[in-house]
Design a protein around this nucleic acid. Structure first.
Length: 424
RNA sequence: GGAGGGGUGGCAGAGUGGUUGAAUGCACCGGUCUUGAAAACCGGCAGGCCGCAAGGUCUCGCGGGUUCGAAUCCCGCCCCCUCCGCCA
């Protein structure tokens, strides 16, 4: 959520920033400003009347204590009370409308987010060299089927398309990745958390997934809960409505969870294999930090993501996502894209966003120092390991001529002893 | 799921219709005293909104309602606790 005061005081700045997202927000902003004006007028009127009522009520109390008659004042205040009630009803309507509009406005892109849309991400750098194969490389599905470690046909029977059974050695690989990632992040000061994956609407609105991305979310209607698409949601909501101690910043967490996405609108996209599925597991990092430190924190998080891909020895490139391709909450986003031999191109494996104060304002996450008043924090989230996609990358990049999968050296300590070749 | 109890400031805990945004204690911050510390004493100590400001206004889980006036009464929701049931 944007700061209403900013919209009020610098509407043109907001307008042009939103235009960088490819939104013509003219109408919405005009409506917003109009509602804001009405709201403040109403508040002025209401408070004046409440002030009168409070003062006269005090006089009534005095009079009653002294056994005097106060019926004229009571009658007058009955009328004032009704006026207040009617104005309050108007105010509620105006505020609901304002809230509704405001919730739909995305964050302002950072000046350092490139111009353009989905195709305009700027490549920051590449790392590693795609492997030269002396045999025709297979894709992860072909490898997985042959080894009977990926089973999507039976998953379709059980759950429908875009679900997967991981079996055998891939399960060991999954938990090796998780364990490796958690230990690395813990050593960098991120506190491990296993999060709830069903959350209330508040958490979805608070993180900015509602209302914009509602169609992406599985909803459990009977209980009014939502399955999260990322641990970012419960991690961000962890300190909802809290005022944190400035001395504890930055507050860093690493969460592990299953993630659920409906992938509505992705029909026909990435249909082969488990690149895009409805359910996957992910290790996610999250940071609450001081507003003046978030750019630095963002780069720090990206450096962790890069360190992991480098240790896994997976060729990748880092991109800076263009303003028009940012999620609603993000002001700036870096993606790391890993090389997939079967596709001959780089594909997204991690994503790291600086949401500035957009989520914090909705969730009311603030901090306070020894002196001064509370202020909104900045929130950042980043993928540590998207298990499914990382498994794909390992399978394809580490495949042998016989169709087995070599285990990246850094993961070996986390797999059963001696298991250096998966599938055999 | 059933029955009962409860949600007040960082914590504990008063308060059942009229200066109670809230006693008291603890914690915390500043000061006096002290060689230093402790103790004692004095002072401070939750936020939101409107406003240039002065100030006003709102908030005692959340949202409605009754009333001239609600932390206190009524309704709905959320959460916590105890017992029973169920259960990985």
């Amino acid at each position: 959520m944007l700061d209403l005061k900013l919209i009020r005081s610098q509407p043109d700045l907001v307008r042009s920033a939103l235009r960088r997202r490819g939104l013509s927000a003219e109408a919405a902003l005009d409506a917003l400003l109009e509602l804001d004006r009405t709201r403040r007028d109403l508040i002025g009127e209401i408070e004046a009347k409440r002030n009168l009522r409070n003062a006269v009520s005090e006089e009534i109390a005095q009079a009653k204590r002294q056994g005097q008659d106060a019926s004229a004042k009571i009658e007058a205040m009955r009328v004032v009370g009704e006026e207040i009630k009617s104005l309050e009803a108007q105010l509620r309507q105006v505020e609901a409308a304002l809230e509704d509009k405001l919730l739909g406005v995305p964050n302002l892109p950072a000046p350092t987010a490139p111009e353009g849309g989905p195709d305009d991400a700027v490549v920051l750098h590449e790392w590693g060299t795609p492997r030269e194969f002396d045999f025709p490389p297979k894709d992860h599905l072909e490898l997985g089927l042959a080894l009977d470690v990926i089973d999507m046909e039976r998953a379709a029977k059980t759950s429908g398309s875009r679900f997967v059974y991981l079996k055998g050695d891939l399960v060991f690989l999954q938990f090796a990745l998780v364990q490796y990632a958690l230990q690395k992040l813990a050593s960098k000061g991120f506190r491990p958390v296993v999060v709830p994956v069903l959350v209330r609407d508040e958490a979805m609105y608070g993180t900015g997934f509602f209302p914009t991305d509602m169609q992406q979310v599985y909803r459990v209607e009977a209980d009014g809960l939502n399955l999260v698409g990322t641990a970012e949601v419960p991690l961000a909501a962890l300190h909802m409505d809290e005022i944190l101690d400035e001395a504890d910043l930055p507050l860093r967490y690493v969460g592990y969870s299953s993630c659920f996405r409906r992938e509505a609108g992705a029909a026909g996209k990435d249909t082969r294999g488990m690149f895009r599925v409805h359910q996957f597991d992910k290790v996610e990092m999250f940071s609450f930090c001081a507003p003046d430190k978030s750019a630095e924190e963002h780069d720090f998080m990206r450096s962790i993501e890069e360190e992991i891909l480098q240790e896994l020895e997976l060729p990748y490139r880092a991109v800076n996502i263009a303003a028009g391709d940012l999620g609603a909450s993000a002001a700036k986003k870096y993606d790391l894209e890993v090389w997939l031999p079967s596709q001959g191109r780089y594909r997204e494996v991690t994503s790291c966003s600086n949401c500035t104060d957009y989520q914090a304002r909705r969730l009311k996450v603030r901090a306070k120092g020894e002196k001064g008043s509370p202020y909104l924090l900045h929130t950042l989230n980043g993928t540590v390991v998207a298990i499914g996609r990382t498994i794909i990358a390992i399978m394809e990049n580490y495949q042998t001529a016989e169709g087995y999968i070599e285990v990246p050296a850094v993961l070996r300590p986390f797999l059963p002893r001696g298991k250096d070749l998966l599938g055999r």
